[in-house]
Design a protein around this nucleic acid. Structure first.
Lengths: 147, 147
DNA sequence: CTACAAGCTCAACTTAACTTGAGGTCAAGC
DNA sequence: GCTTGACCTCAAGTTAAGTTGAGCTTGTAG
């Protein structure tokens, strides 16, 4: 078959919709990989598009780059990941996603359910408890005092 | 009835599970409000607990403080919000939440569905398009080049 | 009345996820 | 063979959401 052309950063950026700088950044974080031409320019295999797409979707639902990187560790090193490989990855996230979906539904189906009731004391409300169980995510300094 | 005691920051922090500094922060961002004692200390009405609970849950599903603040604008100024008030707020978020829930389900039910297929070009994939429609959220500098 | 915990303000630091910019290299067209 | 647009690296800036710390005031329990 005709050899599938490798992609430059610019091409990946265009096709994936993320900035070149972001691709550099993902690479520095170990989320994607490239090899270099003799002139030190990056070249990507086609599977990078899939990776980037997953990164964006996962991010949009609140998974951090660190977690994504960790999940990606499970992908094969020296072989282009198959459909099955990606599927495994999604099941690895299943619990986390299930939890988040539940939270969202709760929020969507009327905040009053749990929040509007009297159960907001941290240790009794099921909603808050779940949050505690699975918390640890979010942007800035989040240093819960465990005292 | 016996007058319901107002709460100090420390009490709110304890009952809501967030740090005092976070409460100060939320107040600076206009998410909660207090009045001051003669000695310049904050005092909160009981509804602050509900507010904080909602803030945390909303945050956990990826709504930014800015968006939460905006949503809170719809709450009545001079009256303690009722169950109905909170419900209205939740319906205001319904679309956004529906979208996110859908994304998560997609991610959970096998990434291969859309991502594993060939439709990753930005303008054709329904997943990516939705993302674009409703994006604008996330932490750092996210300055999409619109060119 | 005097400790001492709890409050207050304000500035500076932190992390995640990028972007921007400066200064220099590569390569494809004319 | 040179120009022009894509690349490269590395350092520094930015935003969100807080935390930490210093220096000072309050209020309550003994």
């Amino acid at each position: 078959m005709a050899p599938v052309r490798e992609l430059t950063v610019g091409q990946v950026a265009m096709r994936s919709g993320v900035a070149v700088s972001a691709l550099h950044f993902y690479e520095a974080r170990g989320l994607i990989r490239s090899h270099r031409t003799s002139g030190n320019q990056r070249r990507y295999g086609r599977d990078v598009l899939r990776r980037v797409a997953i990164i964006r979707v996962a991010q949009e639902v609140g998974i951090s780059l660190a977690d994504i990187a960790q999940a990606f560790q499970s992908l094969p090193e020296e072989r282009t990941p198959t459909r099955e490989d990606w599927n495994l990855l999604s099941t690895a996230w299943r619990d986390e996603l299930d939890h988040k979906i539940a939270q969202m539904k709760k929020l969507r189906d009327g905040l009053t359910d749990c929040i509007g009731c009297g159960c907001m004391s941290i240790d009794k409300c099921p909603l808050r408890n779940k949050e505690d169980r699975l918390g640890r995510q979010g942007t800035g300094a989040r240093r819960l005092v465990v005292s």
